[in-house]
Structures are given as structure tokens and as C-alpha cells.
Amino acid sequence: MTDPLIALIAGILIIGFLSYIFWPNFGLSDKLKRWTQDTERVQIEDALKHLYDCEYRNISCTINSIAGNLSINADRAAKLVSRLEALGLLAIQGEVLQLTAQGRSYALRIIRVHRLWERYLADETSTKELDWHDIAEKQEHLFTPEQADKLAAQIGNPVYDPHGDPIPSSKGDLPTKKGKPLNEMLPGEFANIIHIEDEPPAIYSQILAQGLYPGMQIRVLEVSDKRIKFEANGEECVLSPIIAKNITVGIIQLEKQVEGKYKVLSSLKVGEKGTVLGIAKALRGQQRRRLMDLGIVPGTEIEAQLESLNRDPVAYKVRGAVIAIRKQQADRIYLESKESEKG
């Protein structure tokens, strides 16, 4: 029999070695996989995407902007552009870079995968919002159009991504751009957020930190060169114009005006009742559908009934049934703010 101490040390070493190789994402085998990936195709596809984005937003695109967008040097960008031209994806007219029909449809294919993936991550998985873009960036280069169609079918053929961008159809159709940037609104106007640009990440995370998301209703209070003040979900937000520029809004004529401050479902104590006002747009996809299926729609009476450890989850009485909901969701269900009655 071997000495147990030696056996233990050997065992730990073997496990350490194996996890060094096979640990997901950080292990040697996954790193090797990443190194051997086709970097040229990835760059071509990223460049096409950037070019298409410029075209959609009606701004001009240059070798420099490509270099900036892909974070490569200008030399490399110039080479990339000539490669794109050689492939028949791009036409160069002087300084202006223009996508060919073939290039456009290639770009749309990549964008379709990217936005579908973001939608999928947002609706079906519980991936962190800040990770969506990065995962989609990787997947867009790996998916074939057939796989994209399959993914789309699986998640109910969405037409918008979670940032409010339209998803190209499998034939490459896209609706015309609507809305205007938030910083061009006038005080007193009501609007719906229809899109939040997720790049650059620094600005995106600031917008997220304010709790803003597409579909949210806002009312502009004050616009100046230094700041834009507006009300969203009953709370005041202040953004600098540089950040506000990344939010696209659609002006709306209000049908019903929501007044006063909201209360959230999670604030109910056991025995207290409330009336549902709405579910925050941040609850998406299947989560949202499930809550509505269970009868949590505007006007529903709801009563807190049971608490578990740390008050998470809490069971509520909804339309005769007792439903347990985690705090994370209960925080995003709004109640009418009238005084809660004792049950």
C-alpha cells in the first residue's frame, strides 16, 4: 500500500492538472480552440457589419472608422478593405466605401444571427444583460443561415432584438428606421424608448445603470446643452446629451397617462393586497408570458400570503390560486399606489 499522504498529493496534482487542461473557458483545450479559430473571416464579417450599420444610419464610412470599430491598425484595415473588394462584397468610390448587393445580404445575414442571439439570450436564458452582446458577437460567426432560422423558429420568430433593433427577416428585409435620438426631444413630450445602442459598452452600462430599457415610457422635463432631465417609471433621470444620443425614442400621443409613483409587488407584506398596474418591460420572453398566463395582468388583485427564507420567494394569492414568485420578478411587477388594505 502506498503512503496515504503521497497518494493524496498525487491525487490533488492529477485533479489540478486535468482541470488546468479541461476547465471550461479558461482551460488549455478551450484556449487552443480559440487560437485556431478563423480570424480572417471574423474580421471580414465584422467589417461588413460596420459598413452596413453606417449605411442604415446614413453616415459615411471610412478605412479609419473600420480600423476604429474593429480595433486594428489602419494598415490592416486597408488590407481588409481591398480583400472585401476582391471578394465582390464592397465597391470603393474614391473615399466612400459602398456595400455591393452581395455584401449587403452577407452583412444582413450576420446581423440577423447577432440580433436573434441577443433576443434568445434575453428571452430564454438568464444571461446577464452586459454579456449578451459579447456572446452574440461570437455566435454570429459560427451560425449558418439554416441554424439561424431554426433558432428563430424556436423562440417565436422575433422581429425586434432586446435593444429595440429590428431583426432582418430570413430574406434580408428590414423596416425603415423610425424614431429620433432622446437629446432632440422637447420638454413636455411623451415618448417610448424604442432602441438603446449597446456600443460603446461604457456608455451602455451607464444607461443600464439608470434602469432604462426599450418599451419604457418617458416624459421629458428639461433639455439643455448640459443635461436632459426626464421622468421614467415615476422616477427622475438625468443624462448628459452624449449618453442620451444613444437612446432612440418614438414620440407618442398618450392614451392613458400614468400618474404618481408606483409601488412594486415585492413591497407587499404578508396579508396586504394590491392591484397590478403592469409588468416592467425588463421581464421578457417566457418569464413575462408565464406571469401573464397565471393571470398577472393590469387590474388583477393580488395578496401576499407566504414568505420563505429571506422573503424570497414569496407566495401570492392571484385569481384564487397561490403562486410563488421570486423577488427578482416581484420587483418588476408594479402595483397601483393607493393605500394597501389589510386583508
Binding site: 424556436q154 423562440i155 417565436g156 417566457q286 408570458r289 408565464r290 398566463d293
Partner: peptide, 8 residues
């Protein structure tokens, strides 16, 4: 099922 409109 609670509904027939979801995608499960």
C-alpha cells in the same frame, strides 16, 4: 397547461 400561447 395554463395557456396555449407560450412556446414550451
Amino acid at each position: 397547461t395554463y395557456s396555449l400561447l407560450s412556446t414550451s
